[in-house]
Amino acid sequence: MTASTEFLTVPQVMERLQLGRTAVYALIHTRQLASITLGRARRIPADALTDFIQTRLDREAA
Results as ranks from 00 to 15, higher is better:
39 G>F: 00
61 A>L: 07
8 L>C: 09
19 L>A: 10
58 D>Q: 07
62 A>H: 03
61 A>E: 02
4 S>W: 04
52 F>C: 10
7 F>C: 08
3 A>Y: 06
3 A>G: 04
21 R>K: 04
43 R>A: 12
50 T>R: 15
15 E>P: 00
33 L>W: 12
57 L>N: 05
41 A>T: 09
12 Q>W: 08
17 L>M: 15
62 A>R: 09
11 P>K: 04
55 T>K: 15
47 D>S: 13
49 L>F: 12
38 L>G: 00
38 L>K: 11
6 E>I: 14
23 A>L: 09
20 G>E: 13
20 G>N: 12
45 P>V: 05
24 V>D: 02
45 P>K: 03
39 G>V: 01
32 Q>N: 09
46 A>L: 03
9 T>A: 10
37 T>L: 07
49 L>V: 07
49 L>M: 06
16 R>P: 04
39 G>C: 05
31 R>I: 02
9 T>G: 12
12 Q>K: 14
61 A>G: 00
19 L>G: 09
22 T>K: 11
10 V>Y: 07
25 Y>K: 01
33 L>A: 11
27 L>P: 03
30 T>R: 12
31 R>G: 01
45 P>R: 06
23 A>F: 02
6 E>R: 08
12 Q>E: 14
3 A>N: 10
27 L>G: 05
35 S>F: 14
59 R>I: 04
55 T>F: 01
48 A>Y: 14
8 L>D: 04
19 L>C: 07
26 A>L: 02
35 S>P: 10
6 E>S: 05
37 T>F: 01
55 T>S: 06
57 L>W: 08
53 I>W: 08
21 R>S: 08
13 V>T: 11
21 R>P: 02
20 G>T: 08
8 L>F: 13
25 Y>T: 06
18 Q>H: 07
12 Q>N: 04
37 T>V: 04
5 T>H: 04
60 E>Q: 00
42 R>I: 14
50 T>V: 15
22 T>A: 13
24 V>F: 08
35 S>M: 12
56 R>T: 01
56 R>Q: 15
1 M>N: 02
22 T>M: 12
49 L>Q: 11
